[in-house]
Nucleic acid binder design. Structure first.
Lengths: 325, 325
DNA sequence: CGCCGAGAAGATAACGTTGTCACCCGTGAC
DNA sequence: GTCACGGGTGACAACGTTATCTTCTCGGCG
């Protein structure tokens, strides 16, 4: 900036004014400065700017795994919105490790981003309190945060499960198995709770042997599937609570002897035979919504935290519409 | 840092020494300073550090689309490596738009990252020249960059096509169709060139009507498939040159009357029936390798640019092992 | 006993911006 | 002719670090 000022024969401050598009610069001066900027290939040092202004025009995004299509889609939406405001997106994965979530998040906040979006894993996110009181806007996605007051954008798990259950009930299924993730996971709890509630609402009894929760390991899924399908009175339909479980189920049983509705879409779901009937979440909407909440909060830091539920929809493709036996 | 110094009764510089783990601090002083840091919840302002040191301990990653599993996997590998060195990853998508590639990349370099990884789209990347001579390390992935001297990490497209072709030839196929992306795309050119070369090497004539390149639109794929499959002497095997094309083909023809080998793996490829035979790239290796090249280059900025080819492998799953008719 | 060197700590000046204030000059009102 | 005003510009300090140089205090050695 100093060099540009010298080349254009103006003061440093005038160059700053030009770079920031301030209007109080005479057209003739502006032209000279612009020319000097172009000639010297000058570009503002964002780090210095951040130091002066306090915020780095960046947003941090901490997800479970950026290679997971669900989170990759959130990332895409966030990035698209961020670019409109000339914000840079820093992205990192927690890999389901609470300590890593914290390290990655704090690594981001040390760069003083305007906002932080995170998919919480740890029990509490109170390590963010100092940054929040320092003006950081925070939004949780996929699961709510604990120990801090912040906005949250979640899928409408309850409605999703309702869609799945009622879809199966409508076809006459009465023995519906539910296979969900570890109850330590918030979404797993929400979904299985909804499952029980909707079944009860329709007066359909639930056999406790047919509601099974656990981490989606091959062993767990295999053993659970055996008990659900091989018993004397097997289930006629199955709901899988997330896509890692769905994948395990499909790998073990390419042609499942029961109807299947999966929570979470899969990329090639329509190419399978039968096509996979899913409750699809809308990760792009989650990312977009999070960005909207954050820009509201940056405009009005003290507003009440909001929790927004993003709609899900049922996509019938075959696997959930057959096999009543 | 000033507050911490005051609280610990030492000078600013001593706090700096502690924060940076310098060894010339008396154990007793170190204890006092650490205590003050913890008590005040102090964390270093990375922006100020960057300003002083010139580099922001970040790396920029510009891909075509972070929601594309191939690039998401590259991102994951990059992030994993970056975290080991306490580097932050800024990620952005060009969406195949040269102007956007440039804007995103320059938006990153304005933050003075240590290194930039990009999947080039634009004809030339010479807009990076000022930053490179300023010490930025650059590495191209997926395709080489033009107009700048930089490292590159690419899939071994030629070997991949060779594997595909020879796999089909070994089963007796002689009429093999090739369906590739727009020849404006570097990888598309490399792959189709390899196809012709390997076919020639084996003395198998190639009918020019059966080598078709174009953007993977439904219309293009549908029309091309018709001519390849419906003519009097149809192809008995098909190679698709990237996964968007593969997807279109599979959507049109769930049960293809020809053997199929696809370049690029798909998430559920093994669950399809028949399973999809693919030439799988190794995006994680691409990301890791790029990071290695960059750390070499940061250590030795003037070394010769290197181009590394990452091995690919053929995964037979059924679609490429049948249907000779 | 004086000196030197090493180990520990501090003072100060940058790094590249932007916010604040001050200045200059011409114009229009009184 | 004076004054207030505002558009255009500049000087300077500050943001939070770190690099460089300096200072101080010991202990050991000639």
């Amino acid at each position: 900036m100093k060099d540009v000022a010298e080349a254009a024969g103006v003061a440093l401050k005038t160059v700053s004014r030009v770079v920031n598009g301030e209007t109080t610069v005479a057209p003739e001066t502006l032209g000279r400065v612009q020319a000097a900027i172009d000639r010297l290939g000058y570009r503002r040092n964002e780090g210095a700017r951040q130091l002066r202004q306090g915020r780095s025009q960046a947003i941090g995004l901490v997800v479970r795994d950026i290679a997971d299509p669900f989170f990759a889609a959130i990332g895409k939406a966030v990035e698209t919105r961020a670019e409109e405001d000339d914000l840079v997106v820093m992205i990192g994965s927690s890999h389901d490790d609470p300590a890593r979530e914290r390290d990655v998040a704090l690594g981001f906040t040390a760069r003083r981003p305007n906002a932080l979006i995170l998919a919480p894993i740890a029990k509490r996110q109170d390590y963010l309190l100092p940054d929040i009181s320092d003006g950081l806007a925070v939004c949780a996605v996929d699961r709510p945060a604990q120990g801090i007051a912040c906005d949250a954008v979640l899928s409408d798990n309850a409605v999703g499960i309702r869609l799945a259950v009622e879809h199966l009930l409508k076809q006459g299924h009465r023995r519906i198995g539910y296979l969900g993730d570890d109850p330590a996971v918030f979404t797993a709890r929400e979904r299985v709770t909804a499952f029980r509630a909707v079944m009860a609402e329709h007066g359909v009894p639930v056999d406790e042997h047919e509601v099974r929760l656990g981490s989606p390991s091959p062993e767990f899924v295999t053993s659970v599937m055996r008990t659900m399908l091989d018993e004397s009175d097997p289930v006629t339909a199955l709901i899988t609570g997330n896509n890692r479980i769905t994948l395990e189920v499909l790998k073990r049983h390419p042609s499942l002897p029961a109807a299947l509705v999966a929570f979470d879409d899969l990329e090639l779901a329509e190419l399978l035979r039968p096509g996979l009937t899913v409750v699809a979440q809308d990760p792009e909407a989650i990312g977009r919504t999070a960005m909207s909440l954050l820009s509201d909060r940056l405009a009005e830091p003290l507003r009440e935290p909001r929790e927004i539920r993003v709609p899900v929809r049922l996509i019938p493709r075959g696997s959930g519409e057959t096999l009543l036996r």
